[in-house]
Design a protein around this nucleic acid. Structure first.
Lengths: 245, 245
DNA sequence: GGGCAATTTCAGGGGTTTTTCATGGTAATA
DNA sequence: TATTACCATGAAAAACCCCTGAAATTGCCC
């Protein structure tokens, strides 16, 4: 597996170069841009990064906007870099979009430390590095374009479905609690009920499960949450035999 | 589910009270202390919080020290509150101990936002990430997937059974009182009778005892409670220490 | 505004889990 | 042995959770 990919969007050339050089020296792969559209184009072409560092005030597109677009594709962690210390902005950003917020001027060491903390909490990010993820012979997923290909057929995922699938995939083999799924897919909102989650899981299943009564990929853990399972070969060890109840 | 529990350690009475009152008003359960030892005692007595807010400079115990002790018990997320903006301290803290760092003076809204972000990105501090526990040659337990494998057969545990087994296992070799089991499995509810507990223990036994008349693993201590016993020599080592009520 | 896609709410049904209840068994005590 | 308190067990009722389709709502683009 390759290096960790950082998407950087910062219009001040000096700061941009500083971050780029420092992080590159710390053996990250840094893709640096000075405005939102180019960065989003890059994602469309080359796939998702493991983490995004976004300045807030940019020439044509606000950092929040970029963040929304990225989050509509997948659950990519975001750190905002900003010159303003305005509490409203910070709170709004944290509530709706970001995993962290760092205020200029800052030291690069601190930025690095914060990046690593965030990444440490986001397991299995290898999925984000390949433009197209091949789950097995039947299923492959392209998060940058919100598409799944299953048994030759191709479906478009809605933004919500996309995030849910991404969160599940990132923790493949572990049960992801309903609460966690809701928090990640509907960050900031507080009036989302489990019923809503169920409906979305249902439609996600309809797209990638051939037999929805015996789901192959997405498993329900009653009372807890859902789990993405990668069946036979690699993946997790679910003990050879399972006679089940 | 109950409220989110915050452990607060801050020796400045004003700030302490401010945070306590604000977070309580935002419907968190706040356990506030002015020094490390009392806070750690509280954990030993009353169980782990969902998140800890720690000041760095405290009378007898440094915030880093408290953090180490807590992290040694469980993966509880930590946010440091500090007056210093020293990068070395921040970096060191983030690297080794904390999920986030907030510098005084700060607005309570921002603290709340950061708490929520940290909680949202934690993989849930339940027993969801423990590895498979091998009790002996016949029995192994996988709490992450709520399953037991006994003599080649695999059974799924219901949530209640899972909790009960988990509590018993953590104190393997000791008798766990009925009342304790009830508090653990039905935290918050107050109309649970021992009869109910017995029925659940019965069904737990049916799943992992081959001869329910002569139970091998779960022993009844008449008038007191139940005890999980690991028979011969090389049983498992279930952490000697445990912090519960 | 009209149309379209996505989201959310709602309600029925099915299955599982939890709880209660009733009965018989077992250990301690006098 | 009789009594009492506690426990095991099965069965049935109640509560709960999830699936699913359909309708209502929202949001966006032309």
């Amino acid at each position: 597996m390759g290096k960790t990919k950082i998407l950087l969007v910062e219009d001040d050339p000096n700061i941009n170069k500083l971050i780029h050089d420092y992080m590159t020296a710390r053996s990250f792969d840094v893709y640096a841009f000075s405005d939102g559209p180019e960065a989003l184009d890059h994602i469309t072409m080359r796939g998702l990064p493991h983490i995004a560092l976004l300045d807030l005030t940019l020439p044509t597109m606000h950092g929040f906007e970029i963040s929304s677009r990225i989050k509509a594709m997948a659950d990519v962690p975001i750190i905002f870099i900003t010159a303003t210390n305005d509490t409203d902005t910070v709170v709004q950003g944290l509530k709706k979009y970001a995993e962290d917020f760092i205020v200029k001027p800052f030291e690069l060491r601190e930025l690095e430390a914060r990046i690593r903390v965030v990444l440490a909490r986001m397991p299995s990010l290898d999925y984000a590095s390949e433009p197209i993820i091949h789950i097995d012979d039947h299923l492959s997923i392209d998060f940058a374009h919100n598409r799944v290909v299953i048994g030759g057929k191709s479906f478009t995922l809605t933004p919500t479905e996309s995030i849910l699938l991404h969160v599940l995939l990132r923790r493949a083999g572990q049960v992801v609690e309903n609460r966690t799924l809701i928090v990640r897919a509907w960050a900031g909102k507080d009036d989302i009920y489990e019923d809503t989650l169920r409906v979305h899981m249902h439609r996600l299943r309809r797209k990638l499960e051939s037999d929805s009564h015996h789901p192959h990929y997405i498993r329900t853990e009653r009372g807890v949450g859902y789990m993405f399972t990668v069946r036979p070969a690699e993946g997790i060890t679910v003990d050879a035999d399972s006679a089940d109840d």
